[in-house]
Design a protein around this nucleic acid. Structure first.
Length: 567
DNA sequence: CTGGTTATTAAGGCG
DNA sequence: CGCCTTCCATAACCAG
């Protein structure tokens, strides 16, 4: 066990034997701290004399004039007095008591890491820690009621479980069925990219964008308890089923316009159409519906991938990383766990095969391809980077893949050279040096453009990156964009609308602008719309479009678990 | 170059 | 209203 060092608060701890002075502007200071203070004073003076402070204050006032509204109270509500207090175990960790000052407490034998005050489980079984990597269970299916109960009493009240079951079993099933029967041919691989923008044309696109509104408090709801890491939207064009995954492994599903019997049912029990589940024990890094809307696929930092199958009414573990312990011999992810620093950072459907195949990227720089068709297997597992890979994207051509992450390089690969894990270390076809970490890189629906969100404070649009070879120079289209979200917000990842509108492609991004704003850009980099309104009171870090609605709908998720719907 | 620190950031919750 | 917590992001820095 390692405690935090409180060393060198003022930089003068250990080296008393070597008296030292610190020079600044020709003056000697006794301690480093004094020197720093002098430096700060100088900076203050310079600022004051420049008149910038006055100007800044004026700007601040102007911004504050529009007084920040309170966060909306729709959606989840914490129940102050738990109805049935869960039997607590002895461990203070499990009671959520912070071991102050201790961050990473220890690395346990099984490769688990305990973050103080962090990975507590409301599950009151004595056996919680036996599950590999502190997961929610041993990998068996999770029923709807179990997934709700795992959220703990804090977020439930009378009838929460029933409301969730009712919603999942009836409303969601109906929504899924009416959609998948009217939607195209069954059996053929459903390509997300083939969704046409039906009623919106390039002519009506701008007016559609202008119509997006955030002026009603009904367009915000708290959907998860914690900060949102991922958002997804069900593809039925006639409904808005907005989903969010949070830092602790919760998945919130919001039926934005409740209808029929359900609405009546829910008057009493539920929170404005919001239902909360906890299929994971770590951040939900990516979530996506398959195109037919029959399953919601999600990956978590806890190393597991689960799919909520609407028909089977269960969160099934379809893949998870496991150690090389013989116990896990028959698991799909046997021997794929890379230690306590390893987690699943992103999931991307392999659009060639519907939702039956997907790519995963890890914090350790590898990309896996998982194939769930008849013979379930991990097609390949390749280390493509020394550092975490934040995103990967498969070009519509079905073989060019873009990866991006902490390595500060966008790389393009031919996945045909990775057909199995034994193939030798692949080489990138092309790459772009960004210089700082890259939050995401996504191909546009046509594949013509590659959109990157970078810590260099740019949104870059590369043209025909899939045809490039070698070093890619500075892109033609570069949007200056403040991406400094800091530590407490999820990073921005600008995302395309999966359809194009008579050739026009658009994408959405969160923004640090005040008043808070969601931005929509055109494929040529032009800012088409800044969506603001009383409902948007916090930065929407992770955004997406409704994939198929007749009108444009934008969904944004923020750091307090709220979803905002612009429509 | 590696490892180990710390600054920075926004927003809700609570006193 | 003002302080406190957040704590699996990232960059920048420094010491060895």
């Amino acid at each position: 066990m390692r405690t935090t060092r409180s060393r060198a608060v003022s930089g003068d701890s250990d080296d008393d034997d070597a008296p030292q002075t610190f020079m600044f502007q020709g003056k000697a200071y006794e301690s480093y701290q004094e020197m720093v203070n002098a430096k700060r004073q100088r900076n203050q003076d310079v600022l004051a004399s420049s008149g910038l402070l006055g100007a800044k204050a004026a700007i601040d006032d102007a911004v504050l004039e529009q007084k920040a509204a309170k966060a909306a109270s729709r959606g989840l509500k914490r129940s102050k007095a738990p109805r049935e207090p869960l039997p607590r175990r002895k461990s203070s960790r499990l009671q959520g008591v912070a071991a102050s000052g201790i961050y990473v407490e220890s690395e346990l034998a099984a490769g688990k890491v305990v973050v103080a005050g962090g990975l507590y489980t409301p599950n009151d079984s004595e056996e919680e820690s036996k599950f590999f990597n502190d997961r929610i269970n041993d990998g068996s299916d999770l029923t709807v009621s179990e997934a709700v109960e795992l959220c703990g009493s804090k977020w439930s009240k009378e009838g929460t479980v029933e409301a969730a079951e009712q919603f999942m079993k009836q409303s969601l099933s109906d929504i899924t069925k009416t959609f998948s029967s009217t939607s195209s041919r069954k059996g053929s691989p459903d390509s997300v990219r083939s969704v046409p923008g039906k009623s919106i044309t390039s002519k009506t696109l701008q007016s559609n964008l202008n119509a997006l509104s955030l002026e009603s408090d009904t367009c915000v709801a708290k959907v998860t308890p914690e900060r949102i890491y991922s958002v997804a939207c069900h593809p039925n064009p006639n409904h808005i089923i907005a989903c969010a995954g949070d830092k602790r492994g919760h998945v919130g599903i919001w039926n934005v316009d409740q209808y029929g019997a359900e609405a009546k049912q829910e008057d009493e029990s539920s929170s404005d159409g919001v239902h909360l589940f906890k299929p994971f024990n770590g951040a939900v890094s990516s979530m996506t519906w398959n195109q037919s809307g029959t399953s919601l696929l999600a990956a978590s930092y806890d190393g597991s991938v689960r799919s909520f199958d609407v028909e089977k009414q269960a969160f099934k573990e379809v893949f998870a990383t496991y150690s090389d312990d013989d116990v896990y011999k028959d698991k799909l992810g046997y021997n794929l766990h890379g230690g306590y620093r390893s987690w699943l950072q992103s999931l991307e459907l392999d659009h060639r095969f519907g939702s039956e195949c997907f790519f995963l990227s890890t914090s350790e720089g590898s990309v896996m391809h998982v194939d769930l068709r008849s013979k379930r297997k991990v097609t390949f597992d390749q280390t493509l980077s020394e550092r975490k890979i934040n995103s990967m994207s498969l070009h519509p051509n079905g073989y060019t893949m873009a990866t991006a992450g902490l390595s500060t390089v966008v790389q393009l690969w031919d996945i045909r050279s990775m057909s199995d894990s034994k193939s030798k270390k692949p080489k990138p076809l092309a790459w772009q040096n960004v210089g700082k970490s890259i939050n995401s890189a996504f191909f546009s629906p046509s594949g013509k453009r590659l959109l990157t969100t970078t810590m260099m404070d740019h949104l870059d649009i590369l043209e025909d990156a899939h045809l490039a070879s070698g070093l890619i120079k500075t892109p033609k289209t570069r949007i200056k964009h403040d991406n400094r979200t800091g530590r407490w917000l999820s990073t921005f990842m600008a995302r395309w609308h999966p359809a194009s509108f008579s050739g026009e492609e658009i994408f959405v991004s969160g923004s640090m602008k005040k008043p808070r704003t969601i931005e929509v850009f055109g494929g040529n980099g032009s800012l088409l719309r800044e969506i603001r309104g009383i409902a948007l009171t916090a930065v929407a870090s992770r955004c997406c479009f409704h994939p198929s609605a007749e009108k444009l709908i934008v969904i944004g998720g923020n750091s307090s678990g709220r979803l905002t719907i612009a429509r």
